[in-house]
Amino acid sequence: MENELRNAIRELFANQGVGVAIGYGRVGVDGAVGAVFVTSPDDVDQLVWNNECRQNLAVHLTRPEVKALGKIAIVCKPCDARAVVVLANEAQIKREDLVVVGVVCEGIRNVKPDGSTSDKDYPKCETCVQHVPANVDVVIGETSKGEALDAKNAEVATTAGHQAKLAKLRAMSAEERFQYWRDEFSRCVRCYACRQSCPLCYCNRCVADKNRPARIDTSASLKGNFAWNILRAFHLAGRCVGCGACASACPAGIELDLLNLTLANAAKEHFGFVAGTEVGAAPLIGTYDRDDKEEFIR
């Protein structure tokens, strides 16, 4: 599969005028896998594909440093490819200027606290059903594990997530849940790794960085951390594709994706909406229906 991927990228350099191919390579300590930016067909052999390819590379699509390198080809897992769809739907990228090379994915290994690779899958991969990328230009690899997701079978997409953990959390009392997050958020240092590693947190200036007036406390206090984490999660409501990049980047090991999964579930349950599965879909919160549910309104 790795050779197939490399050949496809070589071909893109030759025929499609690609200036940079964003893929995975062994760039970190002890050969840890991270993003590589291949700018010449001679360097294509740096690219790898395996179950350690953790990051969502779509985060680089909106960065000026990367855009300066020319036309982009990007390697995307099925969940990551959904982020590209959302970016295009929200007019952050021109999809026609981009070549998306989708790779078939059967699950990515989790990362251990010491930065090394675990022998277990990411929680979200354990129940994932989207193994074949949809809405991409080239598909690399094969699997017997299922078909590409499109708008038609989108209803299954949000089962990719650690639903069991969330269900357990939701079964607790409100006090217990609050206590759980209190413990988790007490470790938050407000490094904003969650925001910076998220392809859909693309604002030039985040509201958390606005100080006239300050929308939320910038302190890594409990008060500031609750406000920040609620804000981050809700700004991704109906947009998050569940790639898990936020939780994986968190140096404090907070399972932030449980918050995003809550909203993805709600979007699906109440509005039949699954982010990033339909090209051209209007944003969930930017639209409305006269018949939207309102049983909670007095």
């Binding site: 959390l169 849940r177 609620i230 809700f234 409501a237 918050l259 109440h270």
Partner: peptide, 11 residues
């Protein structure tokens, strides 16, 4: 409708 769900998970 969505925000209530988030508040619920947060406790």
């Amino acid at each position: 409708k969505l925000f209530r769900e988030l508040l619920d998970t947060v406790g």
